[in-house]
Design a binder for these strands. Sequence first.
RNA 1: GGAGAGAUGGCUGAGUGGUUUAAGGCGCACGCCUGGAAAGCGUGAUUACCGAAAGGUAACGGGGGUUCGAAUCCCCCUCUCUCCUCCA
Length: 433
Amino acid sequence: MLDIKLIRENAKHVRERLATRHGGDEVKIDEILSLDEQRRSLLHEVEQLKASRNRVSKEIGTLMGQKRLEEAEAKKTETREIGDKIVELDKAVVETEKALHELMVRLPNLPHASVALGHTAEDNPLIRLFGEPAHFSSTPATHIEICERLKLVDFARGVKLSGSGFLLYTHWGARLERALIQFLLDLHIHEHGYTEVAPPYIVGRHCMEGVGQFPKFADQAYAVQEGQDGSTLGALYLVPTAEAPVANIHREEILKENQLPISYVAYSPCFRAEAGAAGLGTRGMIRIHQFDKVELIKIVKPEDGYAELEKLVGHAERVLQLLGLHYRVISLCSGDMGFTSAKTYDIEVWAPGQGQFLEVSSCSNCEDFQARRMSLRYKTEGGENKLPHILNGSGTALARLFVALIETHQQPDGSVLIPEPLRHYLRTDRIQA
RNA sequence: GGAGAGAUGGCUGAGUGGUUUAAGGCGCACGCCUGGAAAGCGUGAUUACCGAAAGGUAACGGGGGUUCGAAUCCCCCUCUCUCCUCCA
């Protein structure tokens, strides 16, 4: 959520910045301004009435104490009318605030000044390229072929169990997936100083709203129903990312300045309905309904937000470097950025069998956009309450990392060579049929 | 799932319709005192919104109701604790 004061005082700037986003020209700034104006004027009126009611009520109390009953009764009659008016105005205030809130939560974040203007992925500037694509003397196999040959994933039975978009990892595939999770967590804990948390995989609606998944992207989440009566439907959701629970850990709290920065790392499965992506477009593991991910979350002072974002990207990149993978980092242009983000770097890893780069990490600074939604603040040494910046980054998403790994390290004999840092987790240096 | 007991400020804990603008204690900050500390004394400390300011309004788990006036009375919900039941 944006600061209403910023909109009030600098509507032109907000409108212009939002217009650079995808769909940003539909933004209802005028409506917001008029509701805000209406709200403040109603508030002023009703608060004056309440002040006078409080005053008279106190007088009634005094009169009652002095047994001056008829005088008290007269004042009661007088105040009763004020009370009716207050009820009416209170109702108007609530309605106005609700309407205002509805519009406010649908407003995307302002892009940071350093974000390139653009419309689509074509306009995303390349920041850097690491390594080189693996060289093959003949056409490299796709991950689907490798998985079938080495029995890493049983695609058909995954579909049998849960429908298309769900994977059954088998044998070495299951072990490789688990080894990767362990490797990622250990890397971020021991080398990058993150604190591990293991969050719930189901969260309440308020958490989804807090990170900005809701209300706009509600159709992308799986709603959980408890029992058969459906009474809990709409209240609980499978997490689309660990960001949903983890970023909300300190919601509605006032942290002390010396608690910052906070750095959390969490593993979770991620559940995405991918509504609208009929048939998911691709066979294989590229776009699925459930995948594993290790997520990095930072809560930092605003002045540190962008330095921390650079560090965060570096931490995610380290994963790919250690696994010997070729990748590129791009900065999303204004039109391609997510709803909550002020600035986003995507990391895309090269998958030789696909012949394309796959997005395995998205690192964003949401500035105070989420903090305001979840009412997370910190108290400065000077005693002032401020909103922290909240950052999130994949460190990294697993299924696609799995793909890049086996496609990159496949050998002419059909086996897959395991990169050194993974070997002791997997207790082998090679997966073969 | 069943029965009972609870939910008040950073913590503890009073308060059962009107100087409660929430007592007292602990802890915290600042000051006095001190060679320095402790003790003692004094002062200050919640959050949100409106307002240029003075100031005002709201919040005692959440929501609704009664009343001129609700922490206090009534209804609904949530959560916590204890004991059963079930269960990995």
